[in-house]
Amino acid sequence: MDNYKIIQANSVNTKINLKEVYAYRSLIISFLKRDILTKYAQTKLGIILSLIQAFAAALIINLFFGILLNIEITNYPFIVYAFPGMTAWYFFSYIINNSGTSVTNAQSVIKKVYFPKLVLPIYKSLVGMTELLIWLIAYTVILITYQIPVGYNLLILPIAITFNFLVGFSIAVWLSAITVRYRDASHIIPYLIGFGIFVTPVFFHTDMFPEKFSFFMHINPMAGVIALYRYCFISTNFDLKYLWGLFPTFILLITGLKYFRKVEKIIADVI
């Protein structure tokens, strides 16, 4: 029954400890529930407000690009084409916005009790799932309105969501660790999102991108994510080159987890 734990000073242990995070899964669930409860249940309009937000974005984009600029990319109405990209981008930006500051925002708990801090960006990213769900519901409504049938490609959707989540999470881990050391790092986040949307085919078609820069398009993981979503819903062809985006994602993820682990030790001291 005796279980010994040895705390050693200066032990250089940057091994990513996912096992421990798994042991604390009930904490992730608990935090998740808390955030969802306080986000939606407390305000009567909670979910409706998010839905309205999604529809408003759809309306504005459709009005601006679809009707005023009269851009026609495919056979589909502009909003049917663009909305999956907007959804993916919104989920992505939600993750980095909220997880990026997850550690610094939880300082009162961090100073008082031990738990693997990785729990924080994980659960904050998972909270974004609810927003994603709401946007997908909005998209379903749009698809029904335009009477667009959905094929078996939809079975890929979980993969698209996982990919989307990992891209956001890998950056969120980095950001949440950096903000511990440099407080003003969180100011980068809006620029990251604001700039990123222009190099990612959210509103435009990948073919509109110059051929000689296509490598950068393929290596951009969010471009891959959006292409996957479109493949799911409206069966646009999926270029396998987009899977290159997995490499930067996994490199970011693993280095991020390592860096996070390194910073984790001093979090309670610095924060």
Binding site: N3, Y4, I6, I7, A9, K112, Y114, K265, D269
Partner: peptide, 14 residues
């Protein structure tokens, strides 16, 4: 309680 890590020495917890 492992909230902070020591600079030197060790703690064995049973």
């Amino acid at each position: 309680s492992q909230v902070i890590t020591p600079t030197e020495g060790q703690i064995i917890i049973n």
